[in-house]
Write a protein that binds this DNA or RNA. Structure first.
Length: 568
RNA sequence: CGGGGCAUGGCGCAGUCUGGUAGCGCAUCUGCUUUGGGAGCAGAGGGUCGGCGGUUCGAAUCCGUCUGCCCCGACCA
């Protein structure tokens, strides 16, 4: 493609809305443009990347005998009522009505539709197992779209659904998909990790997530290299600490702390570390207006774990400041476990802190040098927090490391949740109807692209992995307008590369070299070939890989051979 | 949905406090020069200052209201 035929509108300045690195680069390189909150147009350059990702996914899915189909984006409410999710799914499901006031939704996922297809199309166990998939636009009315295409409302997803006669077959299908996903993410040249996960609203039994490791990730993943364990920090059960409670060394002291309401403020006000402070959170109780949960200052409450306590109302609800004050008589910043007149639970790790700092249950006051047993009785212990780096791995005693991840894939063993609700049965070898077992498998296609950029960029721009680069090669002629030789050589080279199957950009714009170099770097084309007078005399051109800092002179006539060698 | 911020040419911003001729950089177009890392000079086009209502002789600026977008928290591929 000649750049005179392909308008690439690269931006020097960063659009002020873009926060994440990948979002900024996608806008600057002209891959996408925002239409409204969470809605993006894929421009021609971005579209090429999108198509490459789709192609890889299709090839690997087809290899595994999965069958491609396409289901409607708009789905009738009846199916969702039948599965129970019309009520369950909540505000994220965008509901709409047609001219006859019939109810529909925009598909955030397609379990209902595919189960409906399966119950009509699949009659016999002889037809199983089957895996249907599609690559299609989904809509989820996210509360807060952000990071561009990373969390958009409209996005492209590859979703696959498998149908099985029994649990064993489901397991086989699940493991096959796990392998297929690994192949896909390997081909996409992503650094990723497979993580144990919660199945959330989709439901079912076991599920695993594929996370691309990146600083900007929204999920925190705990892992241990040695035993190969990895899980979302929210899903890891934690046990009572082996640490012994140390003997008190400080006197209990009441300290005036005016307006000091957060752990951060407290730490700088009285010069302690967060792990030496205990924080008190109030949630709604089952039979009481309030239950107090005590955590170490540096730890995070885990909602699912807290919700599992009998005394805590489900679903979990934090009290707002006025309710909290009503239940305790104290402002929220000054709550503490000592002399608190409501049910109290304490996280295991908070129970082994001695000489700690906590709210005094008196406005504008905290205690320092507080010790369990000496100054107050030990409350009931529980596992209340998210795992952090250094916690022991559940599968051994290795300390866990924590990394940020972007969820790009999720595989589920759904079981019979949908097939049962929607009566999807086949006849078995005795002619009896049997409810099918299902698996479902998603890949965030558009998110994969953002994730790839998060992992592959530098201060100049994107560095595409060869597998998904919009073009393989860019030719930059220097002073083409003035030199017939340059033009001629460039045209010849362009033709030769195209014929050899390389997707090539030729920058034939009348721009200064600096502009061309900057654009080439920004849009991240892997191989750069520069044609200039000085090297032409030797029959050479300059080769540079986007990832490398070095250029080298190579003979023009050997260029195809050289590109082949560089392909890795 | 709760908390915060922003809305002025395609993009990034100033001007708003203290009402009085709408401005800068980038981008775009024309011409000349320039051509190995986002050029220089000369010229040009492009804005009902998010919408509606109000105050005023006069509103980008003050008041009210609505809308959109972004950021921080609870959801997910």
């Amino acid at each position: 493609m000649r750049l005179t035929d392909l308008p690439i509108n690269t931006l020097k300045e960063v659009p002020s809305d873009a926060e994440a690195g990948s979002h900024q680069l996608m806008l600057r390189a002209g891959l996408i443009r925002q239409l409204a909150s969470g809605l993006y147009t894929w421009l021609p350059l971005g579209m090429r990347v999108l198509n490459k990702v789709k192609k890889i996914i299709r090839e690997e899915m087809n290899n595994a005998k999965a069958l491609e189909l396409t289901m409607p984006v708009v789905q009738p409410a009846e199916l969702w009522v039948e599965s129970g999710r019309w009520e369950e799914y909540g505000a994220e499901l965008l509901r709409l009505q047609d001219r006859h006031n019939r109810e529909y939704c925009l598909g955030p996922t397609h379990e209902e539709v595919i189960t409906d297809i399966a119950r009509h199309e699949l009659k016999s166990y002889r037809q199983l197992p089957v895996n249907y998939y599609q690559i299609q636009t989904k809509f989820r009315d996210e509360i807060r779209p952000r990071f561009g295409v990373m969390r958009a409302r409209e996005f492209v997803m590859k979703d696959a659904y498998s149908f099985h006669i029994d649990e064993n077959s489901l397991l086989e299908g699940y493991h096959l998909m796990k392998e297929v996903y690994s192949n896909i993410f390997n081909r996409l040249q992503l650094t990723y990790r497979i993580v144990q996960a919660d199945s959330g609203t989709i439901g079912g039994n076991k599920s695993e997530e594929f996370h691309v490791l990146a600083q900007s990730g929204e999920d925190a993943i705990a892992y241990s290299e040695k035993d190969g364990f990895a899980a979302n920090i929210e899903t890891i059960p934690l046990h009572p600490s082996n640490t012994k409670l140390a003997e008190p060394t400080e006197e209990l002291k009441l300290v005036e702390t005016p307006q000091v309401k957060t752990i951060k403020e407290l730490c700088s006000f009285i010069k302690v570390k967060p792990e030496q402070c205990l924080k008190t959170l109030l949630v709604q109780g089952t039979d009481t207006p309030a239950v107090a949960l005590i955590l170490r200052g540096d730890h995070e409450l885990n909602g699912v774990k807290a919700q599992n306590l009998k005394a805590v109302a489900s679903p979990l609800r934090m009290l707002n400041t006025s309710e909290a004050k009503g239940a305790t008589g104290v402002e929220t910043g000054f709550l503490g476990p000592k002399d608190l007149k409501i049910p109290v639970y304490i996280d295991y790790s908070a129970a082994v802190v001695s000489d700690f700092v906590c709210g005094a249950n008196i406005n504008d006051h905290h205690y320092t040098g507080v010790n369990w047993k000496r100054d107050l009785p030990m409350p009931e212990l529980a596992d209340l927090r998210n795992a952090v780096a250094g916690d022991p791995s559940p599968s051994g005693n290795e300390p866990l490391s924590v990394a940020k991840g972007i969820e790009v894939g999720h595989i589920f063993q759904l079981g019979q949740k949908y097939s049962q609700a929607m009566k999807a049965t086949v006849l078995d070898d005795e002619g009896k109807p049997r409810t099918m077992f299902m698996g479902c498998y998603g890949i965030g296609v558009t998110r994969v692209i953002a994730a790839s950029i998060e992992q592959n960029h530098d201060e100049k721009g994107i560095i595409w992995p060869s597998a998904i680069a919009p073009y393989d090669v860019i030719i930059i002629p220097i002073n083409m307008d003035k030199s017939y030789r340059i033009r001629e050589t460039t045209e010849e080279l362009y033709k030769k590369l195209q014929e050899s199957g390389y997707e090539t950009i030729m920058d034939d714009r009348s721009q200064r070299p600096g502009v061309k170099f900057a654009d080439a770097d920004l849009i991240g084309i892997p191989h750069r070939l520069v044609i200039a007078e000085k090297s032409l005399d030797q029959g050479q051109l300059e080769y540079k890989h986007r990832r490398s800092n070095e250029t080298e002179m190579v003979p023009i006539k050997n260029i195809i051979k050289i590109l082949k060698e560089k392909q890795l």
